[in-house]
Write a protein that binds this DNA or RNA. Structure first.
Lengths: 222, 222
DNA sequence: TGCGCACAAATTGGCGCCAATAAATGTGCA
DNA sequence: TGCACATTTATTGGCGCCAATTTGTGCGCA
């Protein structure tokens, strides 16, 4: 499923997502040829993805022997959420001064597109319009490398190739967060904007499978 | 040259460093087989590295045609320095409460090792001991994923496989910054520590080749 | 019965060959 | 002389085969 027009397929994220979804259990061996078949991917791409997953600690690599799923570390996901908060707060702070009436209209349109996707779009529509909404804000940060890093770190934390909400209620909550964010931008209220951004990130933790018995979200934040 | 014991060779950083050093000019084609020979690397690793460099914008990829050096963007380096500042300030803030007398002694030893390397060590010694010094501080941050991201972003900005100082004076300045950092930690002065960290990162910009006529450092910072 | 050694099995990793593709170049015609 | 089309060139990218390496298993001996 091709979600967004990206330069290349994020196979590492896809395999990582399958691991987080429980398709591959800790300790299980991942054979290159099996992954080629399961993901309809070429050998080079599978090896590249496994190299990246090994570098990030999601799998372990035994030379000439294979790759093995590592014990999942949900603490890493929580830490990534904290990093996201740090980066997106800074990106939002930099972006706000550059958001005029025209830009605000674009952001509102993107927010509406997500609401439409929540109501009657596919999962891919929801993922696309969600990412587009956030990008419509952060693209106005003067530090474009920061804007790109925000996307990259968000992709790292994500359990699959696309963002998935476990329930309609979670989708609606995300949509409500988006409204808070837009309202804060319209009011030019940086404090409210940052508060909404932090809240949105923290509560997005609830979208992760509860590997250790309770959702990653719903914890008190800094 | 094997610098530090890392899990795998950072070929992308090596090739990127060669580009930044002027070994490959903007517009020049990079042939996979040439890079295999130049860096004594296997084809898979060269292709992986090129894929990463294309993703980061340092080279452009024409499918089935080749990889070409992109026009260098020193603005990206400046933006990365700003991101480093953001991340390392947070990592230092998290680490300080966890640095007791024993940890401080370790940090002082690491600082002394760098000074020794400045005085009579090889370039590799200087790079190693510099990285070891910073890691000796950030490893105490509770968010270990942040500590790792700090290293990763620092590697991205670096022009070569190892950190290089253009002159003895720059080395001494780095050593002086390290002293400031250690003094601030000993005094448990977070404000002074963060100021020293920011200054250290900003002035490290002077270590980059001045592609556009003037060093990246020596600019007023935030 | 347990240990050590040899061999087998499994998988990765390297490599050579060739298909695929994009651009460059040459040729013919208007 | 310029344009269009065909051919050539250059490089990537895919793939199959096999070497390399690690672990598992079986057998023999103390």
């Amino acid at each position: 499923m091709k979600v967004r027009k990206e330069q290349k397929r994020l196979l590492a994220a896809e395999i990582g997502g399958a691991i987080l979804q429980g398709d591959y259990r800790p300790g299980e061996w991942l054979r290159q040829i099996d992954l080629e078949e399961a993901f309809a991917a070429k050998r080079f791409d599978v090896r590249s993805a496994l190299t990246q997953l090994a570098a990030s600690g999601m799998v372990t690599h035994v030379e000439n022997r294979g790759y093995r799923v590592a014990q999942p570390d949900y603490n890493v996901v929580r830490e990534i959420l904290a990093i996201r908060s740090l980066l997106e707060v800074e990106a939002a702070t930099q972006a706000l001064p550059n958001i005029g009436p025209t830009e605000l209209d674009d952001i509102k349109r993107a927010q509406q597109a997500f609401e439409d996707a929540v109501a009657r779009g596919s999962k891919a529509d929801q993922a696309n319009t969600n990412a587009a909404f956030h990008d419509e804000i952060y693209r106005h940060a003067p530090n474009q490398t920061l804007a790109k890093l925000v996307v990259e770190i968000r992709n790292r934390a994500r359990p699959g190739p696309i963002a998935l909400w476990p329930s309609y209620a979670e989708l609606q909550r995300s949509a409500a967060h988006h409204v808070e964010i837009v309202d804060a931008i319209e009011a030019r209220d940086l404090h409210a904007l940052l508060k909404a951004v932090r809240r949105h990130i923290l509560e997005s933790g609830a979208n992760y499978p509860a590997g250790d018995g309770h959702p990653i979200g719903h914890r008190s934040a800094d």
